[in-house]
Design a protein around this nucleic acid. Sequence first.
DNA 1: CATCGTAGGGTACGGCGTACGCAAACACCC
DNA 2: GGGTGTTTGCGTACGCCGTACCCTACGATG
Lengths: 251, 251
Amino acid sequence: MPSRPPVQDLARSVYLLWGHHPAPGRSGLSVPRIVAAGLELADAEGLDAVSMRRVADQLGVGAMSLYRHVPGKDDLTALMVDAVHAEAYGDDVEAATRQGDWKDAVRYVAARNWDLYQRHPWLLDVHAARPNLGPHTSRKYETELRALDGGGLSDIEMEAALTLVLNHVAASARAHRAQTRTVSDSGMTDAEWWAAITPALTQVMTDPDLTVSARVGNTVGATFNTATSPTHTYTWGLETLLSGLTPHLTP
Amino acid sequence: MPSRPPVQDLARSVYLLWGHHPAPGRSGLSVPRIVAAGLELADAEGLDAVSMRRVADQLGVGAMSLYRHVPGKDDLTALMVDAVHAEAYGDDVEAATRQGDWKDAVRYVAARNWDLYQRHPWLLDVHAARPNLGPHTSRKYETELRALDGGGLSDIEMEAALTLVLNHVAASARAHRAQTRTVSDSGMTDAEWWAAITPALTQVMTDPDLTVSARVGNTVGATFNTATSPTHTYTWGLETLLSGLTPHLTP
DNA sequence: CATCGTAGGGTACGGCGTACGCAAACACCC
DNA sequence: GGGTGTTTGCGTACGCCGTACCCTACGATG
């Protein structure tokens, strides 16, 4: 059942992102305070913990009061994302290009995004339908595109290359989090988990064709003590990417 | 509050994945039928539509009856994923290696995964904490590793390279879906959406530093009529990746 | 002091996963 | 056939979620 959202709502979301929000009411409730409360919850307990009720509780306010300031949860999330994107480069659009050659610039961009995901893992759970057009997200995008500008890539290729790099960072960060988080959540290390299922697995997994995966699994397990090493995949993959981009780029 | 899951539960999940499930009860309910109902719902309406209640409705059965056959929703999802992974290569572990040189093999692997995401977009929404160890997933992994085997990559590098490629496919497929889906959901094309927010955006977005992103945005918009082109990013990114992997691989 | 727009919040609806425990159907033995 | 123990199926309920609707009560204004 497609329901076309009124143009008015879309405009409202844009205005909200750019600081056009209602003045604080008599209880002192305001958009910045709501966003701050949401960020606190998300950083501490993840995106799932950010419910309208819990944000309201955090502020000593009724759940429905939030709706006077924010149209709904999606907009709140967008505001949170934009707020956090301010941390990446400190509003300095030349931050990446100053790092040296283009490879260093891209490495810097990747590292800043990696750091962002470490500081705010919930960013990995935000799946917005449309791109975020907030002020800080826009400056972040500008900064990152500049890292690739003037190297001989077409505009189309710049967009694709940046997407490629950022997707790689996000996927690696997601894998990294999945590993560390399930360890702390279940109180069970990867090795313990593996030991726990091995009996059942060997009893049941009698497929004789799994030769390569068995060898690789053993090597990886022996090397990292885990099934995979997200940080290794991150750095190795980034260098591989850079090497793949090299033919396209001058100096 | 970490709660260590009993070893027994982990083993049960493994057994379940490998076909050790209770016999059909008197109402004819069985694990395969539950999984089939879940797949039907997921393919038609997405993963969110797969609730225990709706699966049960589909089968003309009470919601709680499902729990006699399946420990919980996570296990049902794992079963669904494994079932669908059977489609990728038809259990032929040499399917990729037969495609020609290693580049063709990797292109084939990427294409099969892309197809899988087109047929079952809900796969993109599955975020399992631990790797799926089902029979079909295992064979899929074997098939994909073989595409990279014997080319001079170490075991560690094979794992990283495969992850790199599969992450790229998943991210591209996700972007592709986000684009087509939000269009059909909102009844609003990318161009219409852009037109709807442009007035508000130009009024508010007066940042003079956004020179490169403005230029790139215009070029991309003029070329693809959209903010981004996921299919282009997919193919261009894949070739870039292959070129980055080339130095590591012989023939 | 009276009025009134509005910020704030209470209640409610329809969803979710699933813990718990009862009822009905079956299998089995006498 | 009758009784009995076990299994299967499911109804109810709990605590979450986002948010629509509407009323209260406050603050500013005249």
